[in-house]
């Protein structure tokens, strides 16, 4: 049988869709509420009192575009970590799926694609909410779902690989504290990277979220040539982590 069979991948994604239909309301609610709360607190609080303009943008414009990255990492890495762990260890879903003519590569790919699509949509919410706070729409923003999709693919793969590597669910705490929180803080969402020490700035260039933040800001206020490199980095990140996730999951699922 063929490798990466669309029928197998579609079947697994249809399972995700069927499950998602039972909880989409709660997810959507928090995806709208969260950026709203942040924009109220930071944008109006900080922006109105302490900070005037950042990199030539109003603070709402700055944070509103930056928060797309926050939405993406929290709707990809975390659901991938917890979802994979729960489906594997508690619900034994993967046992059922792998008894069908489906292999681990198809399983991982399907889970990544589904999370990527979902995060591609939910990643736009902060942008839409920001418009209510005064962000002007721009044509470039139509590319934002694509940027979000590729970033989310990478982080979904990261989450799957982590879930396949930990022995216990508590160990996710190390990953969130040591990896996810720093990535999300040093992405340039709430303050510009340029204010940080040079060494940290250099490290931030390795942070896919930082590239996503820049791409989204440029989609609103004008692209530059180096954006192509940033996009290439996101795609490469997704591809490399995809292979890592397939490996880790094969080791975990096949005795």
């Amino acid at each position: 049988m063929r490798r990466l069979d669309p029928a197998a991948i579609g079947g697994i994604m249809s399972r995700e869709v069927a499950n998602f239909r039972t909880f989409w309301k709660a997810t959507t609610f928090s995806s709208v509420l969260e950026p709203t709360v942040y924009l109220l607190a930071f944008g109006l609080g900080l922006g109105a009192t302490l900070i005037d303009r950042v990199d030539g943008l109003s603070y709402v414009e700055f944070v509103g575009t930056g928060m797309v990255a926050t939405a993406v990492i929290f709707s990809s890495a975390l659901p991938a970590m917890f979802g994979t762990f729960v489906k594997h260890r508690f619900q034994r879903t993967y046992d059922a799926i792998l008894a069908a003519p489906v292999d681990v590569e198809e399983l991982v790919t399907a889970e990544m694609l589904w999370i990527g699509l979902r995060a591609g949509v939910y990643g736009c919410f902060p942008l839409l909410v920001s418009m209510l706070f005064g962000l002007d729409p721009a044509f470039g923003m139509l590319l934002v779902p694509i940027f979000c999709f590729f970033t989310a693919l990478g982080f979904a793969a990261f989450g799957i690989a982590v879930a396949a590597s930990v022995a216990k669910i508590d160990q996710f705490n190390y990953v969130t504290t040591l990896v996810i929180t720093p990535l999300f803080l040093v992405a340039g969402t709430f303050f510009p990277i340029s204010g940080l020490p040079e060494a940290v700035q250099a490290v931030a260039q390795l942070n896919p979220l930082h590239h996503l933040v820049e791409l989204v800001r440029h989609s609103a206020f004008g692209f530059v040539a180096t954006d192509l490199i940033r996009f290439a980095v996101l795609v490469a990140f997704a591809v490399v982590l995809w292979r890592v996730a397939v490996r880790r999951m094969s080791a975990r699922l096949i005795d």
Binding site: A18, N19, T93
Partner: peptide, 18 residues
């Protein structure tokens, strides 16, 4: 290892696809 939140029919449909 059924999907407990999903309908009976959808559980079957997913595996029909797989």
């Amino acid at each position: 290892n059924l999907d407990v939140d999903v309908t009976v029919e959808d559980n079957l449909r997913v595996f029909a696809r797989l």
